[in-house]
Amino acid sequence: MVGFITDVGNVRKLNEDCIEFYEDGEKSIYVVADGMGGHNAGEVASKLASTSLISYIKEKFNSNDINRVFIESIKFANEKVYNYSLTSNNLNGMGTTITACLIYKEQVLVANVGDSSCFIIKDGQIRKITRDHSLVQELVDEGTITEAEAKNHPNKNIITRAVGTKEEVVPDIYELSITEFQHMLLCSDGLTNDVTNEELIHLIDLSENYNEFCKKVLQLAKSRGARDNISLIIVGGEHYENRNYTRG
């Protein structure tokens, strides 16, 4: 079960976000990427990274070593974007964030590069799994600014790690069990800029299915200005079948 939506927002002319997912009954892969770069380079980077990651896992999947395959898929995506950026001056310097999830049986792996996010929700509680690779997050970690000040910091969109901007990339990898969440949400920062964690929980409770949830979240973000592209994908974890959630 999956719901998803992506939107250009109220200000941008181009949607540089990308959502991709793959399910085959054995494993599931979900990806949100937020591209950056001049002209249409960000759109190219996010799409190329997302599709490359999924294609690598599909081809190389090994149930006995899924951690290695997952990490290699991020590095493969980085190589694809980086090499392609060298083919044209218009693509020079392009890159993308990427937050991805691989689910196999009870095992859940989450990878992150940049400032897109992964949240898990269970029993009315929401928890952010990923940690942003951003200048503002570094300032928070140092104690220079507070979490509240970070929300509206002028350098909020400066990221310190991205896919495709360098020859090598090191993703953060998080390991979970399917029993740790009822809902998992991957999203670009265009969502978290305008919608709070508490509002996400509230909208889950108000929605009959994931498709409705995604539409309500997007509507709320756009009502507040939505200066960036907005993308989210939500999937069900343990006991989600006990609610009336349907495929979005």
Rank of each mutant, 00 (worst) to 15 (best):
Asn67Cys: 08
Asn67His: 14
Arg68Ala: 11
Arg68Ile: 04
Val69Gln: 02
Val69Arg: 04
Val69Asn: 10
Phe70Glu: 07
Phe70Trp: 12
Phe70Cys: 09
Phe70Thr: 01
Ile71Leu: 08
Ile71Glu: 15
Ile71Val: 13
Ile71Thr: 09
Glu72Phe: 05
Glu72Asn: 15
Ser73Leu: 10
Ser73Glu: 04
Ser73Thr: 03
Ser73Gly: 10
Ser73Arg: 07
Lys75Pro: 00
Lys75Glu: 11
Phe76Ile: 11
Ala77Glu: 01
Ala77Lys: 09
Ala77Asn: 00
Asn78Lys: 11
Glu79Pro: 00
Glu79Phe: 09
Glu79Trp: 08
Glu79Asp: 13
Lys80Cys: 09
Val81Gly: 07
Val81Pro: 00
Val81Ile: 07
Val81Leu: 01
Tyr82Glu: 01
Asn83Val: 04
Asn83Pro: 00
Tyr84Gln: 14
Ser85Pro: 00
Ser85Leu: 05
Ser85Gly: 08
Ser85Tyr: 03
Ser85Trp: 09
Ser85Thr: 02
Leu86Asn: 06
Leu86Ser: 04
Leu86Lys: 15
Leu86Glu: 13
Thr87Ile: 10
Thr87Asp: 02
Ser88Phe: 06
Ser88Leu: 07
Asn89Ile: 02
Asn90Trp: 04
Leu91Cys: 05
Leu91Ile: 08
Leu91Arg: 11
Asn92His: 13
Gly93Arg: 08
Gly93Met: 03
Met94His: 06
Met94Gly: 03
Met94Phe: 02
Met94Tyr: 03
Gly95His: 06
Thr96Met: 12
Thr97Phe: 01
Ile98Asn: 09
Ile98Trp: 04
Ile98Leu: 15
Ile98Tyr: 10
Thr99Glu: 06
Thr99Arg: 08
Ala100Gln: 04
Ala100His: 03
Ala100Asp: 09
Ala100Glu: 12
Ala100Thr: 06
Cys101Gly: 13
Ile103Val: 15
Ile103Lys: 14
Ile103Trp: 09
Ile103His: 04
Tyr104Ser: 10
Tyr104Ile: 05
Tyr104Phe: 15
Lys105Pro: 05
Lys105Asn: 13
Lys105Glu: 15
Glu106Arg: 10
Glu106Phe: 03
Glu106Gly: 08
Glu106Asn: 15
Glu106Trp: 01
Gln107Asn: 13
Val108Gln: 03
Val108His: 06
